[in-house]
Design a binder for these strands. Sequence first.
RNA 1: GCACCUGUGGCGGAAUUGGUAGACGCACUAGACUUAGGAUCUAGCGGAUAAUUCCAUGGGGGUUCAAGUCCCUUCAGGUGCACCA
Length: 798
Amino acid sequence: MKTAEIEKKWQKIWQDGHYFEAKNDSDKEKYYILVEFPYPSGSGLHVGHVRSYSALDAMARMKRMQGYNVLFPMGWDAFGAPAEQYAIKNHIYPAEAVKENIKTFKGQIMDLGMSFDWSREFATTDPEYYKWTQWQFLQFVKKGMAYKAEKEINWCPNCKTGLSNEDAAGGVCERCGSVVTKKLKSQWILKMSSYAERLLDGLKDTEFEERIKLAQINWIGKSIGAEVDFKLKDTEDVLKVFTTRCDTLFGATFMVMSPEHQFLTKYKKRIKNIKEVEAYQEEAKLKSEIERTDVTKDKTGVKIEGLVAINPVNNQEVEIWISDYVLASYGTGAIMAVPAHDERDYAFAKKFNIPIIPVIEGGDIEKEAYVGDGLHINSGFLDGLNKEESINKMLEFLAEKKVGKKTTNYRLQDWIFSRQRFWGEPIPMIYCDDCGWVPVPEEELPVLLPTVAHYEPTDTGESPLANITDWVNTPCPKCGKMAKRETDTMPNWAGSSWYWLRYMDAHNDKEFVGQDALKYWGMVDYYNGGMEHATRHLLYARFWHQFLYDQGLVPTPEPFKKRVAHGMILGSNGEKMSKSRGNVINPDDMVKLYGADALRCYELFIGDYEKDAAWSDNGLKGCKRFLDRVERLKDKLEDKDSYTPELESIIHKTIKKVTNDLANMKYNTAVSSLMILTNAFEEVKTITKKDYQTLLVLLNPIAPHITEELNEQIGFKTKIVEMKWPSYDEAKTVSDEVTIGVQVNGKLRGEVTINVSEDSESIKAKALENENVKRHIEGKEIVKVIVIQGKIANIVVK
RNA sequence: GCACCUGUGGCGGAAUUGGUAGACGCACUAGACUUAGGAUCUAGCGGAUAAUUCCAUGGGGGUUCAAGUCCCUUCAGGUGCACCA
């Protein structure tokens, strides 16, 4: 039979036998393996998808054989701008385009023989699914965790559309390359920043890869410092600043407000050079993100004439400036500047000739800001103290005088939840002139996305939904008066913020997930996804889940126990695969040429799973060759139900290695150990059926079709998918005899073969008898002999 | 700029966590079987050397009986964040 026929045959058997459908009422121990659901793009499955699916599939298949009730689901993340753009470009209705693409993707995945539980499949665009996305949004609203506020959005003046931060990466529109500007819009926002500490703290309860934890920690950006009040001279107000270096307060020679600071409006009349200030504000607004955050550019700013602050530690007057290097969105939107000990403040002071007062010994203020530690000077009651002591003492002082306190700041901001787009979940809110924002009653969910003639972005920056008047106009659920629906939709991060929960109970039409299912499945045991989702998606998902936990809707605070990330598959030239580079490999072609098993095997063998790897056709051929060699072994079978004695040790060793490697994502060495076993089988005259079947079972998670077929061909009735995972005997994983190296002064001079139970005295004796060793120790004094059991002997001579 | 990761044959990569560096695969070389081979099999394959032996895990130093692995330093590449006070 041909490879393709064998693969089709077994795929049908698995499908018809419902082998991979997880049971919600099982007595078995559960194991939940999740791989990020794909966005079904028009270009079809990528070999990168095949890598992670093969990896997690191998794990799922082994875990099932080990007796676990494995949940290994798959679905589609189908809302979002890319789907919309694909639809616009190809003149297909988005829902149709999504349907088509899902069909292609699913067919491709099926051809690979992945053991997904298709009975739980759904797309985020299914009304049965987004009904519950909307319902959960309403829970946020109910708890005051969602609010509407004016926020600046990225605006492309050419495409006349709002862009997400991702679409406006680098301050340039992803589609047309125009420079992105800002536009003020009223938006729904989720209070994610209030969960910053929890998101940080919750990492303790996870086993994420270190690099992923680190990415999360950096993104959350916790910073402990102090808030200090500077009196604004001749007013009742104080200018609040955040600083991590309150020990340098004596060195603050000026203040800087962000261009958006509210005092600039409030004290407009007192500012003598208001024209100049307003011109600067205007300039800052027009500047693109790219210009504003360019670190290499010169500092700019304007001194505010007419406003003066008072330093609370010495009551000295401090001038106030406005500059765009201070961000409105972080801290209090204003800083105290200590040019002697901060690089940015130093650059600013140098440029505008502002005095620089050193308050810590060390460095040379003529050359640069000194940011290190040292003894304080010019600092009154802090003189002679180091940084840490000074911070503590200053905090005491500030608290006592009631002019400041210890504060923590986070870089993590609230989640802007509105998109002025058609292809997303409608936000289920209604605006009534009398009642304000009113949630759509839960029993009226889902708010369906209407069928429209035009879904292209509009000139005004409104969602295309705004034009559908008979959809927009609706009675207020509270008072019955005519009101208007929210026309913005949710970001595509919304649907992916709870999808793993839905898999637990995918067809529940009463609740988002049943409580029994939640309790049984608990946390996802293994969650695999790309490194590009290590911050945003993972943070959104954890935040969403923590919120649900606080409402008593889910049983655990954290959703994922373990998060791992796969490396990218690059083109054979080592560059990222792309059409323009012409280095794209289509998995379908590879399946046709070499079969699904060979492709799966190769993608696992290609290298360290966590690292990027370059594609090689020859590598794939090598794996195909390996599978062919496994097949040819069936010609030397002996009908025996025991292991061949001389193979026993290597078989036990391999079982151990493959079991551990598959559980620890060390796929490349799992494959290589199976190649080693195959080599060993080839070297002996005959192998028993038991030897062979063990190889087939171990290889099955990697190459499921051919192994099932061979197992059947040699006469076994029980399918591998119904079998138990082989066990190994630790005692048999070590051979009786081992060859160890003998070194003289750390250099290898010979080898001796010893019995595992042999004591060091006997090994030592053997080592000293070795001819070559003798030559090297001749005429020298033996200082000592080190024997490491089963590993090495080292003779130290003088 | 800061943080993190990675540097091992012609290539992808192993190395039980301090114990025989280069497993396994690819590519390559020679041979066998063949009408044929882009099939299969056998042997070889880091560098130098006739052998013995020496040199080799980006470079330099150190700890140790022993270092790819630990420490210091330096170089190169990658990723993330980027005026976060």
